[in-house]
Design a protein around this nucleic acid. Structure first.
Lengths: 198, 198
DNA sequence: CCATAAGCTGAGGGTCTCCTCAAGTTGAGT
DNA sequence: ACTCAACTTGAGGAGACCCTCAGCTTATGG
């Protein structure tokens, strides 16, 4: 790859990072190109479609979340770890509208390893962290989807209230005083399908 | 108003009701006109803009929710009433993608009277229904926004799981075993602003 | 049955975004 | 310096959707 091409790629990634962050994943590609000081054609040269650009921009987030999960698992208190993980992901969502969009469309950690990591977080919290027994991995999607909606709605008005929503959601996941759940959890495939849905 | 105009108005409302319900509030107006068997010009004659059409279509929902609130207040058990109200609104959201969109943009009950009604529901449940003391009216928005997101994501895949999300959210609102909330609730104005936000 | 105001129509102009590709430019190896 | 593959450019076609308005149709009251 030629040096100028590489340079343009960097500029495009930077511009996309910025625009996705404060306008969401639907930010016009033309505007990203303009912000990068490059023509729309060049953008398409470097990234065949929007998805390629999105993936390149948010690749770092996958690593960040994996690290988050590992640090959470390393925490002494299982519940603290569980809560810290969800809080961390929500913090990323709140810092970046694009990532917020993204988490609604794909789990923060994909693949065998990702699911195993998050599954262990849930398992451990259930075993000895006071996470209610009838909660499953798939139920984390509710928290993520829900808080994402609150973040999106309140980011201009009250950029920290999502923490209140999250706190209420976490209390709903605690064992103490829990009530039976009315329907079974989503299966892994259903979660995937639902995320694809929008 | 001429008879044919009235007739067209009805056809338009019917078509809009249908299309909003399964495609959301962004359904193309041209398609609504087509479904109504009427030209796009006529649609604009009857309804100056999308908002007018939306308001006309969902006027009945406002009445339905008001009734829901009154029946909820009439229930013996304060918590049951509170939960029944939220469940009822979520059921409406789940039955109609357009209404689902709408609830994210405006409270299900607006105006002095609407807020008073919902406020009383919260107040009463807090007083003697086991609703946690630090929850306020504005916090209902979290439930509505959150469940709305789940409904939207899962309607094709698992159209009933939102009840699970709602159950978890309700458990988070219960008094037993509640943990202190990290930030103050939204003010009424902030809720309004947030809803306008999207 | 007529006059006329009310209503209907749909082509078309405007905007926005996507994406392509022919023509021009440039980095880099020789 | 020269060559040429790699790269860039931006005008422009395509597709959605919005909304308007000049010209035609029709309900209705007299």
């Amino acid at each position: 790859m030629r040096k100028d091409a590489l340079h343009n790629r960097e500029r495009l990634l930077g511009a996309a990072r910025r625009l996705f962050a404060d306008r969401g994943l639907e930010a016009p590609l033309e505007e990203i190109a303009r912000a990068a000081g490059v023509s729309i054609g060049t953008l398409y040269n470097r990234f065949p479609d929007r998805q390629a650009l999105v993936e390149a921009v948010f690749a770092d987030r996958v690593r960040a979340v994996a690290e988050l999960a590992e640090r959470a698992l390393a925490m002494d208190d299982a519940w603290e770890g569980f809560a810290a993980f969800l809080t961390g992901v929500c913090e990323l969502q709140s810092a970046d509208l694009g990532y917020n969009d993204l988490v609604a469309r794909a789990a923060p950690l994909e693949g065998e390893r990702g699911y195993a990591l998050m599954g262990e977080l849930v398992e451990r919290a259930r075993r000895d962290g006071g996470l209610r027994a009838d909660v499953e991995l798939a139920d984390l999607a509710f928290v993520l989807w829900g808080v994402a909606a609150t973040i999106r709605a309140t980011r201009a008005t009250a950029p920290a209230v999502w923490r209140r929503h999250l706190a209420l959601a976490l209390d709903g996941l605690r064992g103490a005083g829990a009530h039976a759940l009315p329907v079974p959890a989503l299966t892994v495939d259903e979660v995937r399908a639902a995320m694809g849905e929008c």
